[in-house]
Amino acid sequence: MESVKESIVIDCKSETVTSINQMIRDFAKNNIKEVIIENPLARHNLGVCITDPIHLIYNGDVGYYAVSLCDKVTATINGNCGWAVGENLMSGEIVVNGNAASSCAASLRGGIVVVKGEAGARAGISMKGGTLIIGGNTGYMTGFMMQKGKMIICGDAGKALGDSMYDGVIYVGGKIAELGNGTKVEEVSEEEKDEIKSLLDFYQIEPPPSFQKIVPNGLLHHFNKKEFRVWKEIL
């Protein structure tokens, strides 16, 4: 096996987004273990479509689509994120030591995205797998049309939580402003509690005293004229 090299620094100040992405891809291909991205300056599309293993450390705020369309990548973002951090991640891990704007982990397919602070609207929208952990509160339509996967929200959740979800599970530690259509609340099993606790301990997130579990109620799985009330709410 080729030897694994250590860390390389990219200073975004003097580079274009395209050259930064190209460098990261080349480093990943050449078995560099870690890239430190200095001065991201909230630019968009930093770390797109990286599909070889590498660890990215962003020192500062990032714009839209950081670490998006990636596979096998791990990343630590020491700052806040614009829209859609971790969009369509296939596998790997993203830890945001800050807040995330709208649509974090949109269409997540695998791996884990951890937002230590707050998340905006539509967190985990259309999730197709993987795990999303939010240390703080989330906004409107979180988990909309979720298909698979797991979401753990330690704070409060905005309105329309899990609306139209097909499958998957959402745990909420704080208050739920309003449950989305086609969802129901279930008991959290001891096994699930242990799993949530160990995940939060691992990421050093203070756990709330208890969680509610939201799953689909199945009423939107098949049209049923007797459930007009539920179907009237959807497009």
């Binding site: 839209y64 689509y65 829209w83 859609a84 969009e87 649509s103 949109a106 269409s107 397919r109 539509r122 929208i125 259309s126 197709k128 797998g129 909309f144 049309m145 298909q147 698979k148 139209s164 097909y166 499958d167 939107l220 799985h221 098949h222 049209f223 959807i234 497009l235």
Partner: peptide
């Protein structure tokens, strides 16, 4: 291929999730 439960009446969103 769509990451859905088999046999479900599928509706898909009309807005993109991330813009």
């Amino acid at each position: 291929m769509r990451d859905l439960p088999a046999g479900v009446d599928q509706r898909s969103p009309c807005r993109h999730p991330d813009w």
